[in-house]
Nucleic acid binder design. Structure first.
Lengths: 221, 221
DNA sequence: CCATTTTCTGACCGGTCGGCCAAAATTTAA
DNA sequence: TTAAATTTTGGCCGACCGGTCAGAAAATGG
């Protein structure tokens, strides 16, 4: 239980520095080319330092994932809480989508690295280290929200797992698209995505409250 | 212009054999571990044969992608054509989703390999070989369908690019989820996804034609 | 100041990669 | 049958990988 890592000042600083360098390197060069040598070079240290402070590359990568997860959760979580207290309906869906989009906009490199890791990091046996199974807790949380909305009558009947998986995929795709087209209007995409899932989920004959009509002109890329 | 590859019988057979072995190896071991040595072993030939028949690994991988794309297009395309002739409304959306799902069900290995390649294959400079930009022509085709539906009044106004990107991401996620949970009911997921996008796209006050109510009980994994 | 511990360096290890090639095997054609 | 062309083999190359290690350097503390 209560292990005490007993990290020295230097230890903590180095670990943070190396994690940051790993994020930057993975985002910039891709997971496959983010070798310990590359990460060390970006951090301005010798390769052996990484081995000295981390048990191995896997521990380093998993720390990166944990860090990004924590930070995005710390951003989105409170906004969801506040929304649920303010208005109990299905509005949390829009808040969720737009909060994530807002975080993306300000932390592009972090999210890029996370995507690289999710797509490419594998265990020794070749199986993906992170896959849809990893997202189970996220799916469960979304399902809970959907089920509440259905019981309240805000949402139509639908399979909550399919809806959760599709929603998360739409958010991931929003990031991937913005990543490929940096001039893409992320906020507008988030609004459209919220509209999409509002229409997809809401009960029949129960129109969403009026919203200013969006501008649907095509964009150039 | 008009190059004549002038492939001998052996040449064509070997190339096909090697492409097949590549598909199987990539699907089974992941892109990163699908080395030329592994592919050659699965094909029962020497490693050098691949180098002899292909300019390099890149050419081989790109051939795999082309082959899978052609085959899925040959499966889905005619079904879309037939649907559009039979009934001009927004029903193509459901046909598209379910056709792709049906193809997935019968060609799991192919699609798994394609996913691996899309996620991991990179150019010399480290940039992804295939990204959302690659899907541009697919997006354009979907947008065309959405725009027609909007003009006809079947669909509500929405940004067609966001809808196309989200739809395709939902289909990709459906495959990924089924891939992680093989006992997952792919056909049911496809039906739910079609419902989702039918609700998301259809014009206000224009309910979809009656459908037998689906069974929305949760599934176990 | 010096002894001890912590931290860092750069060379090195075994392993895998894609690609190359001389020589052997096989097929084709005269 | 035999000479030429095609195909295949299996070993080899240089490059890079993650990880290790002895010893140098730096920090710590009595």
């Amino acid at each position: 239980m209560g292990e005490q890592p007993e990290r020295s000042f230097i230890e903590k600083a180095r670990r943070a520095q190396i994690v940051d360098a790993a994020v930057e390197t993975i985002a910039a060069r891709g997971f496959a080319k983010a070798s310990l040598a590359q990460i060390a070079e970006r951090a301005g240290i010798s390769k052996g330092v990484i081995s000295y402070h981390f048990a191995g590359k896997d521990e380093l990568i998993e720390l990166v994932v944990e860090q990004v997860y924590e930070r995005i959760g710390a951003f989105v979580g409170p906004r969801m809480e506040e929304q649920k207290e303010r208005e109990g309906g299905g509005g949390w869906l829009r808040v969720y989508i737009q909060s994530v989009a807002e975080y993306m906009a300000g932390h592009r490199v972090q999210l890029t690295a996370l995507g690289e890791i999710f797509g490419n990091f594998r265990k020794g046996d070749g199986a993906p280290r992170y896959d849809v199974v990893t997202s189970e807790s996220l799916y469960v949380a979304l399902e809970e929200g959907f089920r509440e909305g259905q019981e309240r009558g805000d949402f139509r009947p639908f399979d909550v797992r399919t809806m959760a998986v599709s929603l998360q995929s739409g958010i991931d795709a929003m990031f991937a698209y913005w990543s490929a087209y940096p001039e893409h209007d992320l906020a507008a995409h988030a609004r459209e995505l919220a509209d999409l899932f509002e229409h997809a989920t809401r009960a029949e004959g129960r129109p969403a409250e009026a919203r200013p009509t969006a501008d649907h002109r095509p964009r150039e890329h």
